[in-house]
Amino acid sequence: MANITRSPWLLHYDGSSCNGCDIEVLACLTPVYDAERFGIINTGDPMQADIFLITGGVNEQNMPVVKQLYEQMPEPKVVVAVGVCACTGGVFKDCYNIIGGADVAIPVDIYVPGCAARPQAIIDGIVKAVALFQERAQKSEKEVDKVG
């Protein structure tokens, strides 16, 4: 797996966002912004996903769901928090049912700000995630070589 940057697969999960970022994530993949030109495919299956896009904060009930999705993804993997709610909790930070941003449940690598995050910003986040993913993939490959 020397060069994987050409086809990273995305998994998208909506934490407790207002939906604004979710539709922007979807809009990214449709013709006008067309993130698919980077070889990205939006998959619904965590076991085949490389990059995890999470929108919205984490609450009591979706905490285990987010953790489970993250654990089901194979190594290496990259997590992108899209929108200010996924970064810190945003406008809902003071609500009784919001624990915080996505990083209270899983390790987040890239934070995309905005309310709602603009497609350009999301694509920028995805491109950064792809680079990081490539780096991690090569690193784990070397480790495999050492053992072998």
Binding site: D14, G15, S16, S17, G56, G57, N59, Q61, N62, V65, F92, D94, C95, Y96, N97, I98
Partner: peptide, 9 residues
């Protein structure tokens, strides 16, 4: 899964 409780704000 998405309950935030924004009415409490």
């Amino acid at each position: 899964f998405v309950h935030r409780g924004l009415e409490s704000l």
